[in-house]
C-alpha cells in the first residue's frame, strides 16, 4: 500500500517535468485557461457551439493532456535518468508500482480540470446548476483516471520506442479531435466518431455537458461508467505492455540505450 501511495507521490515529484511551481502554474493552470478562451471565442465567432460546450470540453481536456503526458513521463524519464534498471530490480509488484505512478497524475488532472471549469465559469459567465457540481466532480475524476491509465500505455511504449514524444504529441492531437471536446462529434466523419467511443474523455465530456445543461446524475451515470470501463481496459493493457516490453528489454538490452 505504501508503494502505491508514498511511492507514487515520490515518483511523481521525481519524474514529472512540470512539478515545479512555475511550470505547474504556467503549463497546467494558465495554459488551459487561455486555450479555453481561444476556443470559446472562436466558437462564438463561428457560431458552432455555445460557451458551455467549450468550457466543459476544455476542462476535461486540460486534465487529459496532463494525465497522458504524466503517465508517459513516469516511464520515459526513468530512461533519461538511467534509473529504470534500478527500478526493475525491485522484487515488488510491478502493478502496484506502475499504478502508484499513475494515481498522482489523476489527482492532479482532477484539480486542473476543476480549476479550468471554475475559471471558465468566472470569465465567461457560464451558469452551472449548483446541484451539478458533485456529478461534475465524479465525471472529471473518471476522465482523469482513464487518461492516467491511457498515459501509462504511452509510457509503456516509451520502454520500447525511442521516439516516445512523437507518439505522445500525435496521440494528444488525435484525442482532441476524436473525443469531440472542441469539435461537436456529430460533425465528424463516422469512423472518427466510432474511434471516439474507445478513447478516454469522449464519454466524460459528454456526461459533463449534460450535467451543465441540467441533466440528473442518474442519467449520465452510464457514461461515467463507460469512461471508467475504458480506463480499466487501458490500465490492463498498460500492465500487459509493460510486462512484455520489460521482458523484451532483458532480451534485447534496450534499457540503457536512449
Amino acid at each position: 500500500m505504501r508503494l502505491l501511495t508514498i511511492g507514487g507521490v515520490i515518483s511523481y515529484r521525481a519524474l514529472f517535468n512540470w512539478a515545479t511551481p512555475a511550470m505547474f502554474i504556467g503549463t497546467l493552470l494558465v495554459g488551459p485557461v487561455f486555450q479555453l478562451l481561444f476556443f470559446a471565442y472562436l466558437g462564438r465567432q463561428l457560431g458552432v457551439a455555445d460557451d458551455g460546450f467549450y468550457i466543459v470540453g476544455n476542462a476535461v481536456l486540460a486534465a487529459s493532456a496532463l494525465c497522458l503526458f504524466g503517465g508517459s513521463m513516469a516511464v520515459l524519464n526513468e530512461r533519461r535518468f538511467g534509473t529504470l534498471g534500478h527500478v526493475l530490480l525491485s522484487p515488488r509488484s510491478r502493478t502496484l508500482t506502475w499504478i502508484g505512478r499513475a494515481l498522482p497524475y489523476a489527482g492532479n488532472g482532477l484539480l486542473v480540470a476543476a480549476f479550468t471549469l471554475v475559471m471558465g465559469k468566472l470569465l465567461l459567465g457560464l451558469p452551472i446548476p449548483a446541484g451539478a457540481w458533485p456529478g461534475l466532480a465524479a465525471t472529471l475524476a473518471s476522465a482523469a483516471l482513464a487518461c492516467a491509465a491511457f498515459g501509462l500505455v504511452l509510457g509503456a511504449f516509451a520502454l520500447r520506442f525511442r521516439d516516445a514524444w512523437l507518439i505522445n504529441n500525435t496521440t494528444v492531437t488525435l484525442m482532441v479531435l476524436f473525443s469531440g471536446t472542441n469539435v461537436p462529434r456529430e460533425s465528424l466523419p463516422g469512423w472518427m466518431q466510432a474511434a471516439g467511443n474507445f478513447i478516454p474523455v469522449t464519454h466524460a465530456a459528454s456526461a459533463a455537458r449534460s450535467l451543465v445543461h441540467g441533466a440528473s446524475f442518474g442519467s449520465v451515470a452510464p457514461r461515467i461508467g463507460q469512461e471508467l470501463l475504458i480506463g480499466a481496459a487501458y490500465a490492463v493493457l498498460a500492465g500487459v505492455l509493460l510486462k512484455v516490453f520489460e521482458a523484451e528489454s532483458r532480451r534485447r538490452a534496450s534499457l540503457d540505450t536512449l
Partner: peptide, 22 residues
Amino acid sequence: DRGLYERLSALDNLRYFAELYG
C-alpha cells in the same frame, strides 16, 4: 553519474528505493 533521480534529494531517492526494494 546517472541512475539517480536528479530532482529529488538523496533522502527521497533512498526513501523511494527502500519502498521498491521492500
